[in-house]
Every structure is written in structure tokens, then in C-alpha cells.
């Protein structure tokens, strides 16, 4: 079974987490860019076969949003960080789902 190492709670089965999708996506700034930017954000997917940065929320634990790097070809989770730290320098803030 897929297991995710929560930085606060330790390694837990994935069923304790809620999946939140691709963390590489950035929500377009309101008012900037046309409808195309929103279309691409909502409807297009990188769909990487290999390392994939993605959101998980530890809903049955600390309830923190995390960003994990999981290889979609093997399901091996290489790296997990709190989303607020991982995206702390992002001027748009944590753009969760």
C-alpha cells in the first residue's frame, strides 16, 4: 500500500490522506490573463509519468496540507514537506485545490 511520510505524524497509510492533485499548477491571478489561462489551469494536465509534485492533506492526522514528490511509475514517495513551507516563497500563496 502507498504510504506517505507526514513531516508531523510520521509514516502513515495513504488512506489517512486526501489527494489534492498536481502541486505544480498555479492559479492565474484574478483579472490578469484571458479565459485561456483559466482553461489551461482547470482543464489541462501535465500527467507526468515519473516524479510528480502533488498535494495531500492529512485529514485523519494533523490536517496539514502537504506537498509530496511521488513517482507515478512506481508510487515511490521521495520527499514530503508541509505545503506552507514548500510554497512559502510563492507570491500567490498556497494555491490548494
Amino acid at each position: 500500500m502507498l504510504r506517505i511520510h507526514c513531516p508531523l505524524c510520521g509514516e502513515r497509510p495513504y488512506t489517512e490522506f486526501r489527494y489534492g492533485g498536481d502541486a505544480g499548477k498555479h492559479r492565474p491571478v484574478h483579472g490578469a490573463g484571458g479565459i485561456e489561462a483559466w482553461h489551461d489551469h482547470l482543464f489541462l494536465f501535465e500527467n507526468a509519468k515519473g516524479p510528480h509534485r502533488e498535494f495531500w492533506q492529512h485529514v485523519q492526522g494533523c490536517r496539514q496540507w502537504l506537498i509530496a514528490v511521488r513517482d507515478t511509475a512506481t508510487n515511490i514517495v521521495a520527499d514530503v514537506a508541509l505545503a506552507r513551507d514548500a510554497r512559502g516563497l510563492d507570491p500567490q500563496g498556497p494555491g490548494g485545490p
Binding site: M1, Y14, N47, E54, T72, A73
Partner: peptide
């Protein structure tokens, strides 16, 4: 299964 994957191995839950 609920998250994107190419493994062709399903999750037990």
C-alpha cells in the same frame, strides 16, 4: 484508485 498512477498495480484498500 483516486490518484494518478501508471503502475498497473492497484491499492489494497
Amino acid at each position: 484508485d483516486g490518484f494518478n498512477s501508471f503502475t498497473q498495480r492497484g491499492q489494497f484498500p
